[in-house]
Amino acid sequence: MFESFQQQRVIAYWRPFEGLRHGLCPDRPPYPGQERETLCGLTLTVGIPTEVEWLAPTCEPCWDDARSRRDAAARAGGAS
């Protein structure tokens, strides 16, 4: 019953950039003006996204990396 209340780790922070939503490493939350590397290897300056920018498609390489991280975390959690 309490499994649903267990703290879950952030796998990636998502931010629109150049027409796609990219994943950012979850080491710290992104703030406007920061330069950050995406999961697919791009470097971007975090901005303040508009509502329309959030509708952009997701970067496939970022999605694949985030999914791999999620699956690895699930396997590690199941092993304990």
Rank of each mutant, 00 (worst) to 15 (best):
A79H: 04
L42P: 01
R36V: 01
P49W: 03
S4E: 11
L42W: 10
D65L: 12
R28E: 13
R67N: 14
A66K: 10
W63C: 11
R9Q: 14
I48W: 10
P26Y: 01
L24A: 05
E53H: 02
I11S: 07
E18V: 02
E37G: 00
S4K: 14
G41W: 06
R36L: 06
P30T: 04
F17H: 15
G19R: 09
R70Y: 03
G41V: 00
R70Q: 04
A56E: 05
A12R: 11
W14I: 09
S68I: 02
E53G: 00
C62R: 03
A73H: 09
G41E: 14
P26V: 00
R15L: 14
R75C: 06
A12H: 12
E18C: 01
A12W: 13
Q7L: 10
R75S: 03
W54M: 08
R36F: 02
C59M: 13
W54G: 11
L24E: 10
R36Q: 04
G41R: 10
A66R: 14
H22M: 03
L55Y: 04
E60W: 11
L42F: 12
T45Y: 04
L20D: 00
R15Q: 13
R69D: 05
T43L: 11
D27H: 03
L20E: 07
V46P: 12
L24Y: 04
T50C: 02
C59L: 14
D64A: 13
R69H: 04
L44V: 08
P57K: 11
L55M: 15
V46L: 10
I11G: 02
S68R: 12
R75G: 05
A66P: 10
E51G: 07
G19Y: 11
Q8P: 09
H22K: 07
A56G: 04
P49D: 02
A76M: 01
Q6T: 09
A72S: 11
R9S: 14
T38I: 07
W54S: 02
I11C: 10
R9G: 09
T45S: 03
T50R: 02
